[in-house]
Design a binder for these strands. Structure first.
Length: 156
DNA sequence: GCCAACGTTGGC
DNA sequence: GCCAACGTTGGC
C-alpha cells in the first residue's frame, strides 16, 4: 500500500464537502498537470491520502482519505461548459485521468504547513520545498507515520 | 492582492 | 528544439 497527499482549496472542495458526499466518495477531477496525473495513475485501491487544504488562512493537512477507484478518464475534460474543459482530450483519446477517493477521517488537529516546514525530517518532502505546486504527490511511509504522530502532540 | 515559481504554449 | 510570453498555483 502506498501513501499520497492531495491538495484542494476548501472554498472549492474541502474535506467537509467530501465527508458530506453520498458514500463520502468523490471523483478527484480537474487535475491538469502531467506529473500529478501520472501519480494518480499509480494509485491503487486502498492507498491512503493526506487531504491538504491550500489557498486558505492556515494551509495544512486536515484529514485522511483513501482510493476507492483507480484511474479512469476525467470526462470533465470533454465538456465545453466545464472549467476543466480541454479540447485536446477526447473520449477516444483521453488525456486526463481521475481517481475516486473516500473520506476516512479528520485529523484530531490541523497540521499546518508552517509546522511541517519546521521539521528537519521532512525537508525532502516536495510539499515543503519552495515553489512546489504539485497538487498530487507521493508520501513515503516514514513521512506518513511521522506526520500522523504529530496529531497527538501539542504544536511545537 | 501581490508576486515568485513553475509548467505550458507557440513562434521561429 | 529553443525560449519568450503567458497563465496558474498557492503562500504570505
Amino acid at each position: 500500500m502506498a501513501y499520497w497527499l492531495m491538495k484542494s482549496e476548501p472554498d472549492v472542495f474541502g474535506i467537509d464537502d467530501l465527508a458530506a458526499r453520498p458514500n463520502q466518495t468523490e471523483p478527484w477531477d480537474g487535475v491538469r498537470n502531467y506529473q500529478a496525473r501520472n501519480f494518480m495513475r499509480a494509485m491503487k485501491i486502498g492507498d491512503q491520502i493526506f487531504f491538504y487544504h491550500s489557498n486558505t488562512a492556515t494551509p495544512g493537512i486536515v484529514g485522511i482519505a483513501e482510493v476507492v477507484r483507480e484511474a479512469y478518464p476525467d470526462h470533465t475534460a470533454w465538456n465545453p461548459d466545464s472549467k476543466y474543459y480541454d479540447p485536446a482530450s477526447t473520449p477516444n483519446k483521453p488525456r486526463w485521468d481521475m481517481v475516486d477517493v473516500r473520506y476516512v477521517r479528520h485529523l484530531k488537529r490541523i497540521i499546518p504547513l508552517t509546522e511541517l516546514k519546521g521539521l528537519e525530517a521532512l525537508a525532502d518532502m516536495p510539499l515543503v520545498r519552495k515553489g512546489n505546486r504539485l497538487s498530487v504527490m507521493p508520501v513515503s511511509e516514514a513521512h506518513w507515520n511521522l506526520i500522523l504522530a504529530l496529531e497527538d502532540k501539542p504544536r511545537t
